[in-house]
Amino acid sequence: MTEPPGDAVTTPTGTGPASTDDGDASRAAGAGPSGSGADRLVGGALLVGGIATGLEATTFDVAFLTDPVGPKALPLFVAVTLALAGASMLARPREGVGLPPRSAAIRMAGAAGAFLIYAAVLPWIGFYLATTLVVAALAVLYRGPAKGGLAAGLVLTTVLWLLFVILLALPLPVGELWTR
């Protein structure tokens, strides 16, 4: 459906397979502060991403130009900026980037997973059920009690329903599962 989260930061182009994993890899492997390796990875990814951005920009050809600059100029400028920044980071990487401890990284991945599942099931099971569940899941990740999280989800969903549907007359998706 789309690229994995974390892709866009390191490789704005998303075309370089080598750099696609950088963000996630450094996060998963990360336990405590690291040396300059992680920073070098990001710098390298920026460099590769910048080059890929530039290469892609050269394909933006139009049959006849409506203006002398065309659609290439800004992307090329961006590409050079990103590549130079990446090269500079490679040359002088920063020590001791504060990567999260393993337990926190696992919970972050859990939260990201919950958000993606939320996006996937929202049209299907509807806003009310999905939101209650995602709030409960997040509450647990934040070390709250499961029952309390569920209660918070129910209260919040009710408040949002009052606010959006009743007060502002903005429909929220009810879910195909129930309307069919």
């Binding site: 690229e3 974390g6 958000f115 995602v134």
Partner: peptide, 29 residues
């Protein structure tokens, strides 16, 4: 979690598209 739920509703309200929620998560990471 309440803040997160508010953010979801707002993002969904932009285009009424679940794809934007995926993008939002990606940008969160």
């Amino acid at each position: 979690p309440s803040v997160a739920a508010l953010a979801f509703v707002a993002v969904y309200a932009v285009n009424g598209s679940a794809f934007d929620l995926v993008l939002m998560t990606a940008f969160g990471a």
